[in-house]
Design a protein around this nucleic acid. Structure first.
Length: 225
DNA sequence: AACGAAGTCAACCGCTAATTT
DNA sequence: GAAATTAGCGGTTGACTTCGT
């Protein structure tokens, strides 16, 4: 069994826990990450008791003959948390990680999301990187349930430049400038690093630069008319 | 009060990119 | 350089909550 099948197999067997995490699962996961760091998620799944070593061996290494299916399910049901590494990673990133900001999105944040989405399209992790304490999942959910709808009611929206498969020809200086802003954005050291307290705070120079450009210049001549 | 519709959001899925062996 | 492994992304799902009738 190839390693990429680990989650498919886990889903199919129903032997691994799914759905909402319990406080006990959170605690065990947090403890394990504290010791081993937030990486090698399948290892963490084992060490936290979320996945038994033999289950990992079976799933990851693919030596099915080493363990029968009944032995496998027996192990995994009795193993405790029974979460796969992927689930552990997601839980950590979206909920348990330090400095996560929970609660309502402020007007300032909403405005920033709108502007960033206009610039970047559905590149949620990049957008979230500019909103300290917010996760890509949260931004995406907020967009889908609040902003996208609100925005679509107001106007007929052209596709964001970056989200398109093919970027239009550079037909004007403004277009070129905006593409450069996007490049700067992606290469910028301003991307938020959740690991340090110091990294809090919004440096919006790049956004100011972007916003100085004429909004209408995103549109093709056809779209403007 | 009951019930269906709509909204919300945590979690899952499939895939690709990046990194390691 | 190739293969294997790991990390990360964006779209989607489904359970739960809120709203409207």
């Amino acid at each position: 069994m190839a390693s990429k099948d680990i989650n498919q197999y886990a889903s199919a067997t129903k032997a691994i826990n799914r759905g909402a995490w319990t406080p006990e699962e959170d605690r065990r996961l947090a403890e394990c990450i504290e010791v081993h760091g937030a990486k090698r998620w399948n290892t963490i799944a084992i060490k936290s008791g979320a996945l038994h070593f033999q289950d990992y061996y079976f799933l990851e290494v693919g030596k099915q003959n080493e363990v029968t299916y009944d032995q496998y399910t027996g192990f995994i049901v009795s193993a405790g948390l029974n979460r796969c590494g992927k689930s552990c990673r997601l839980r950590w990133l979206n909920y348990l990680r330090p400095n996560i900001k929970r609660g309502n999105i402020s007007d300032e944040e909403e405005d920033l999301i709108l502007r960033l989405h206009k610039l970047l399209g559905n590149r949620w992790s990049l957008i979230a990187g500019r909103l300290p304490g917010r996760t890509d999942n949260e931004i995406k959910n907020y967009w889908n349930s609040h902003l996208g709808k609100k925005r679509n009611q107001k106007e007929k929206i052209p596709q964001p430049v970056i989200a398109q498969e093919t970027i239009p020809e550079k037909t004007s200086d403004v277009t070129h400038m905006k593409e450069q802003v996007v490049k700067d954005f992606e290469n910028s050291e301003l991307n938020f690093d959740f690991s340090t307290e110091e990294s809090y705070g919004l440096n919006l120079d790049w956004a100011d630069k972007f916003l100085q450009l004429d909004d209408n210049s995103w549109l093709t001549e056809e779209e403007k008319s």
